[in-house]
Design a protein around this nucleic acid. Structure first.
Lengths: 235, 235
DNA sequence: TTAGGTTATGTCATCGAGTGCCACAGTAAA
DNA sequence: TTTACTGTGGCACTCGATGACATAACCTAA
């Protein structure tokens, strides 16, 4: 039984390799197909375009991201969820550092590829933004859309920041840890605004008082309890 | 003396018009050129590609934005400066609402155009980010790059939010005022973090939620109740 | 095993975007 | 007028991308 060749993988590898040595524009689809041992027409059965062959995993990754978002618990903060979802994208790069770094070399040199990747990341951004819309109370949706779009853009920007740093370092270092750190910064900076806890007009922060009681308890009893706990009388 | 025709403008107009009626992919460069009364070869002397003919002003606008950034007073907050710079981009659309709306129709229908525009806006974003880097003390640059990239992404996202809203409304309404309002929100939410006044260590102010329940109630029931009352899920 | 169907691949033809090269016309300067 | 420059048209060519059709490989059921 002959081992089934991974034609798709071989085409991608040939596309990246030839583009790195000869240049992306200078490499024809014919050459890529021949290097992978298939016909030119077959190339276009695996990839929609020549650029597509350089980033073959974004489609599948986007699907995984959307699944992740849909499966996320409604109890979690939407901002935290999309910050986690960015980790799925990062993983796609991290799991094959060698290819990722080679690709990075290419995208730095070829504008067409840079724009292709920007378009790809914009799809994640859109998915993030729509997810946050969906997790929002319907009546608030319009009012919060700006915050959702900004939050999605911020998370994608933070992801790209970490990714580029890791790629510039040659694929060395703990990208996941760096992503976590970056996301912590971003979410802390944005969480309150995204949640609508700050309107920009800024009331002083309230203090949390948790009272455990029963529905039968009379009001004066609750007041008494709050007073002893907080040291002042509830207003 | 014959009035010199604005061939570039006529080509753009023909490209948008024909694409709206016949479809962008279905319209050939031949047809666009003929509609503008020039030869096919001339088209490519004015535009690098067919997509370029739909958005002919982004190149000049990006140059204006960069000039504005370089001319901005170093005394002003960089975040405020890029928020203002976004106004230059918005103005490009607003000064010709009719064309802007027609273009919007096109970008919604043609993925290639959507991606072209996303690539264009990413150039503004990059300019914003690099500007903030440049206005930063050299030693802080690395530490602040994440914040700069996030801030640039946030400003661009806010701009796009306002722009899309205005376009969906058919080019009616005071887009500039809406942009100012959106930028006020965004800058207030980000200013402290971008300036490094907060390190992200402190907690955002919490909101008071008082839950009256019984000790017997299961956790999911409480979560459900909080969600319906506050409109969002507890984290 | 064979027949029948499905899937992956190859061949061929065609369209159209984008580019290089050369020619020509109008215009301004010498 | 000659010279030089600029805008334009015509032509040919490459190559990305797609559709139509043929063929080979594989799987399944009888």
């Amino acid at each position: 039984m002959p081992i089934k060749r991974d034609v798709r993988r071989e085409l991608m590898s040939a596309a990246i390799g030839l583009s790195l040595t000869t240049g992306f524009d200078e490499t024809t689809v014919d050459e890529i197909a021949r290097a992978a041992g298939v016909a030119r027409r077959t190339f276009f059965r695996y990839f929609r375009s020549k650029e597509d062959a350089i980033f073959p995993d974004h489609d599948a990754c986007l699907r995984r991201v959307i699944e992740f978002l849909e499966a996320a618990s409604p109890l979690r903060s939407p901002l935290q969820v999309i910050a986690d979802a960015a980790g799925i994208v990062l993983d796609m790069y991290v799991k094959d550092p060698r290819t990722a770094v080679r690709r990075y070399e290419l995208t730095r040199r070829v504008p067409a590829l840079r724009e292709w990747e920007i378009a790809a990341t914009s799809r994640y951004q859109r998915a993030f933004s729509e997810f946050m819309d969906g997790r929002c109370r319907e009546g608030d949706r319009e009012a919060f859309r700006l915050r959702h779009e900004v939050a999605a853009a911020a998370v994608v920007a933070a992801h790209n920041h970490v990714l580029r740093g890791w790629l510039r370092a040659g694929g060395e270092g703990d990208a996941r840890a760096q992503l976590t750190a970056a996301m912590t910064e971003v979410t802390q900076a944005l969480q309150a605004w995204v949640d609508g806890r700050t309107t920009g007009d800024e009331e002083p922060p309230d203090e949390v008082v948790i009272v455990l009681t029963t529905r039968r308890a009379p009001l004066w009893r609750i007041a008494e309890e709050i007073e002893t706990v907080t040291g002042r009388s509830p207003s």
